[in-house]
């Protein structure tokens, strides 16, 4: 009997995929769907996809306002106000909720406890009805959410010497994320996930010592929650993150979506067999401007350097600026490899 998508992904994460294909997933921003509707559909139709996310319902939902992907103002679940200038991609916070240096106004932040009211039975039904590898419907992002709450520049500065109220808030936020992940871990999903962009183009955004002090313990708890419940843990992090990859491996992270090409596949080779590279293919240069041959080479270099009976997922993002033919070619090449 042919292996299910769920089993294929698990075998890949466990480095036991000796004879199956490389599991596939595509990320799309709304931009892709309305700019290239035909290619968008063709890609969906021409390949088998291995990942899913369970639908569920909530007893109560946190208040949000507007649409994150439309031009104008969007207010997220925490009350953070985004200004967006481009349809189909996200905007940026221009008016922070926490304006005081000592975080005395942090009471204005809403912790979206409502997200804990999701229906476990519905999640389990969805998991049962599908043979895809199911990822939970929540995604903690402590560093980014703090930036959205306080504004990027101020948050970075506050991190150098955090005021007491900020540290207290970080604990509350972390406690909320732990409870949310725990509830998701009690469902039948296969994996939990989290995200935070940690790199600029050629370095980490913050000192690794600060990372170790404030964020490593949080990620450790999230990964431990997943593993305690027999789930895999996935993470997304953009930029040049080379210096924290060993730390994430140490914490037991199963799969990382990172900018492979901004670091260079050669430098990542050392992690082959230790973590699964959950994509990607370079969306800064290759996907927008590369030739089909360059795409072939890029995919092959990922496979040659990072595959070890698993350890790779064929993934990329179909986002602003992408050449749709290149997106198609990425999956064609993966398919031709195995």
């Amino acid at each position: 009997m042919e292996r299910t998508s769920r089993q294929l992904v698990l075998d890949t994460l466990n480095f036991k995929n000796t004879d199956g294909r490389v599991p596939r997933q595509i990320w799309t921003l709304p931009w892709a769907e309305f700019t290239y509707p035909e290619m968008f559909k063709k890609i969906q139709d021409d390949f088998v996809w291995d990942f899913g996310g369970p639908q569920t319902t909530y007893e109560k939902l946190p208040k949000t306002q507007g649409d994150a992907y439309e031009v104008g103002t969007y207010v997220d679940e925490w009350g953070c106000i985004f200004t967006n200038i481009h349809r189909g991609i996200i905007g940026e916070v221009k008016e922070p909720i926490v304006k005081e240096e000592d975080w005395s106004d942090v009471g204005n932040v809403h912790i979206p406890e409502e997200l804990l009211t999701f229906d476990i039975d519905k999640v389990n039904e969805a998991c049962k009805a599908s043979d895809k590898f199911m990822i939970a419907g929540c995604c903690p992002r402590p560093f980014e959410q703090l930036q959205f709450i306080r504004g990027t520049v101020d948050l970075y500065m506050d991190l150098m010497d955090p005021p007491k109220k900020m540290l207290e808030f970080m604990e509350k936020m972390h406690d909320f994320y732990c409870r949310l992940l725990t509830k998701w871990a009690q469902t039948d999903v296969d994996a939990l996930n989290m995200m935070d962009d940690w790199g600029s183009q050629n370095a980490l955004l913050i000192n690794p010592e600060l990372w170790d002090k404030y964020f490593r313990p949080m990620y450790k708890d999230y990964i431990d929650i997943a593993h305690k419940h027999g789930k895999k843990m996935f993470m997304h992090s953009d930029g040049y993150t080379l210096d924290i990859i060993p730390r994430l491996i140490d914490l037991g992270l199963d799969a990382l979506n990172c900018q492979i090409f901004c670091m260079g596949v050669e430098k990542l080779k050392q992690f082959k067999g230790k973590i699964t590279f959950w994509g990607e293919i370079d969306r800064q240069h290759l996907i927008p401007n590369g030739t089909l041959e360059q795409i072939d080479q890029a995919v092959k270099s990922v496979y040659d350097n990072l595959w070890a009976d698993g350890g790779c997922i064929a993934q990329c993002e179909f986002g602003p600026g992408a050449n749709p033919d290149n997106i198609y070619q990425i999956y064609k090449t993966w398919e031709s490899i195995r």
Partner: peptide, 14 residues
């Protein structure tokens, strides 16, 4: 030289 990072630059500039 990547010996300090964005936060250090920001507080020095402040």
């Amino acid at each position: 030289k990547n010996e300090v990072f964005v936060p250090e630059v920001l507080i020095a500039a402040r």
